[in-house]
């Protein structure tokens, strides 16, 4: 069983039970949080319920929901931090191992490609601290 358990939650409400939850990689290391969800609507059959196909995380994932101004502002902040090409990452739902209080992935942090912010902050700020 990997998915959101109806036995655990009763009715699954995506915003309540998935969005904003922390992501853990296969080594139980934090690798971001769920900022958005990608839903697939069937063009051939519009009445078919949309299927959850991916989680969205990483730089600009949430900012994209704030419109052009929000996106531009966030992009500028990321560039000031030294991230040249900030972009959100889509994690396929098939790589989700389990959802409980956190979302556990069947991926390593490197495969997630979501460490741009933490790596940059580590390299540009913490690496220069004495004893770091």
């Amino acid at each position: 069983m990997k998915a959101v358990s109806p036995e655990r939650y009763g009715r699954i409400e995506l915003g309540k039970h998935l969005v904003d939850k922390s992501l853990l990689d296969r080594d139980d290391l934090r690798c971001g949080k769920v900022d958005d969800l990608v839903l697939d609507l069937s063009d051939a059959d519009p009445g078919r319920p949309p299927e959850l196909v991916a989680l969205v995380t990483g730089p600009l994932a949430y900012a994209r929901t704030l419109g052009r101004v929000g996106t531009a502002l966030a992009r500028g902040i990321y560039r000031l931090l030294g991230i040249r090409d900030p972009h959100p990452v889509e994690v396929p739902w098939s790589r989700v191992r389990q959802v409980d209080v956190m979302v556990r992935l069947d991926l390593s942090r490197a495969e997630c490609d979501v460490n741009a912010v933490s790596d940059t902050v580590r390299d540009r700020l913490f690496a220069h601290l004495p004893g770091a």
Binding site: K2, I12, G15
Partner: peptide
């Protein structure tokens, strides 16, 4: 729309079944 209601017909799939 405040939230999306979903169900998991099997262990691998989650489908949106309604809107709150």
């Amino acid at each position: 729309v405040v939230d999306l209601i979903a169900r998991s017909p099997d262990d691998r799939t989650i489908r949106v079944t309604g809107l709150l």
